[in-house]
């Protein structure tokens, strides 16, 4: 484990009575990391469990929209890439469940909460993937937005969450690049392929902007999360960063982003852009998006159909443990 996280007290520090709350506040104020067995306020723990679980669920549900295209990918190269990407999403989900478990959450319990609809996942995965161009646009927009969100989370105040994010970010770059490369390839193809790319861009742009959550004024928990340094930037700041980073990429690709209000504002040094349909975001988050029911049904089926495998593995392990104890060779 990371011993640098536990500095020895400075020479001459009087022992004094240990005040866990002051130690927590002090750790945050000095921009150090909180570690699993440290004292932390109940609300800090609950906020993190909710955020990390929701993040983990998003990775796991996020396997579905693209997973549908593995069997239909147009070449062995694209199939292998998509396989690796979807496998990474599973890995990201598991890194995050692992981080949630350090807070006392239980992975099996979190999965039950997901399939019972008691915990949420990112609204973006409730949109359908209609064509293969959607696979490219998901890599470019959705993984690009995820990078905007996740890079600052590498420095989040909770150690295991930050370390999970470091691993995730290292892998996310491949996801974004493969998507953009896929789109570049299609843009060099036929008119029909170029139209497919534009259509996918038109459908995914606004939902991608919604990935950053509601505007700051309607995001009641943001201020507290920022005070605790769980979050480092507000929803609107991250959304702006995403727009600024994506506009030149769209120009290079030769597609139009579907926002008539989108233009460079030299005074602000940022792009101005239109307002996403926040009512749509509310509907999709509350369960009424195009694919909510389908995504959860699929996750539930995978979980239930896998139950016998988990049970068989557990009883095999129990039996082997008895044999080893009794000195019987398998």
């Amino acid at each position: 484990m990371d011993i640098t996280d536990h500095p020895a007290p400075a020479p001459g520090t009087p022992p004094g009575p240990y005040d866990p709350e002051a130690a927590f506040e002090d750790t945050i104020a000095r921009d150090q990391r909180i570690e699993p067995r440290d004292w932390m306020p109940d609300a800090y723990r609950a906020t993190l469990v909710r955020q990390i679980a929701q993040h983990a669920h998003s990775e796991i549900i996020g396997m579905q929209p693209e997973g549908e295209w593995i069997t239909k990918a147009p070449s062995l190269r694209r199939k292998a890439i998509l396989f690796a990407k979807v496998q990474d999403e599973a890995g990201h989900g598991l890194y995050l469940y692992s981080a949630a478990e350090t807070l006392g959450a239980d992975r099996a319990d979190l999965t039950r909460r997901l399939i019972d609809g008691r915990q949420k996942y990112s609204s973006i995965f409730n949109y359908p993937t209609r064509t293969f161009a959607d696979v490219g646009v998901i890599g470019w927009f959705v993984d690009g937005a995820a990078i905007c969100n996740q890079v600052p989370l590498c420095r989040t105040s909770y150690g295991p969450y930050g370390r999970a994010m470091v691993r995730v970010c290292k892998e996310e770059s491949f996801h974004q690049r493969q998507g953009y490369e896929l789109l570049l390839t299609m843009m060099r193809g036929t008119d029909e392929q170029r139209a497919m790319v534009q259509d996918a861009v038109d459908r995914w742009w606004w939902p991608s902007l919604m990935m950053f959550g509601p505007p700051d004024a309607d995001s009641p928990n943001s201020a507290r999360s920022m005070a605790w340094r769980i979050k480092r930037h507000s929803n609107d700041q991250l959304r702006q960063r995403f727009v600024d980073m994506t506009v030149p990429q769209a120009e290079k690709l030769g597609v139009t982003l579907p926002d008539p209000e989108l233009r460079w504002n030299g005074e602000r040094g940022h792009h101005d852009f239109g307002t996403p349909d926040w009512e749509e975001l509310k509907r999709v988050v509350s369960g009424d998006g195009p694919c909510n029911a389908e995504r959860i049904a699929r996750r539930r089926a995978a979980h239930e159909e896998g139950a016998w495998v988990r049970e068989a593995a557990a009883s095999y392990a129990a039996e082997q443990a008895v044999r080893t104890r009794d000195g019987v060779t398998a």
Binding site: M1, D2, L94, Y95, S98, A99, E101, T102, D106, R107, A108, P160, R163, A164, R167, A307, R310, E311, A313, A314, S315, Y316, A317, Q320, A321
Partner: peptide, 29 residues
């Protein structure tokens, strides 16, 4: 009955380095 115990995982990045804790996972054995 199908829930698996938690394991901590340590990886040696390359020869000459210590194993370093990288996270946890669930496994039957």
């Amino acid at each position: 009955k199908g829930d698996w115990p938690l394991y901590e995982v340590f990886v040696r990045g390359k020869r000459g380095l210590n194993h370093v804790h990288v996270g946890s996972l669930r496994a039957a054995d």
